[in-house]
Amino acid sequence: MPKYDVAISFAGEDRPVAKQLAASLVLTGLNVFYDEYEQADLWGKDLYTHLSKVYKDESKYCLMLISEHYAKKQWTNHERKAAQARAFAESSEYILPLRLDDSEIEGVLGTTGYLDIRQFPVEKIVESLAIKVRAYNKAHGIVFETVRVQDVFRKEKIQVRDDGDFRTTCPACHSEQTLDEAKILQEDAETVYTCKNGCQRLVVVSPRGKTKWPAMPDRPAWKEDGAGPGLGFVGYGVGDYFIRNVGDLLFKTDLMARAVLLPASPAALMKK
Rank of each mutant, 00 (worst) to 15 (best):
F33C: 03
T28G: 14
V122I: 14
K72H: 11
R80W: 06
L100Q: 03
E58Y: 05
R86E: 05
V26S: 06
A22H: 00
K132P: 09
Q39F: 10
Y94K: 01
Y114M: 12
L98G: 01
S52H: 13
D46H: 05
Q20N: 13
G110D: 13
L96N: 06
F33S: 03
S67F: 02
S67K: 02
T49K: 15
D102I: 07
S128N: 14
D46R: 04
A18H: 01
L115V: 04
E38C: 06
K53A: 15
P16S: 08
R86W: 04
E127W: 10
V122T: 10
A22M: 07
Q119S: 14
E106D: 15
R86H: 07
S52A: 15
L25F: 04
Q119V: 11
K73F: 03
N31F: 04
F120C: 10
K56L: 11
D57R: 12
D116Q: 05
V26E: 02
I117L: 12
H69G: 07
S92L: 14
E58S: 08
D101C: 04
K45S: 12
I117T: 05
A130E: 15
Y48N: 15
T111N: 15
G44L: 08
Y34G: 02
Q84W: 10
A82E: 03
K124W: 14
Q39H: 11
T111Y: 11
V26Q: 03
D101I: 01
E58H: 06
V126E: 04
L129G: 03
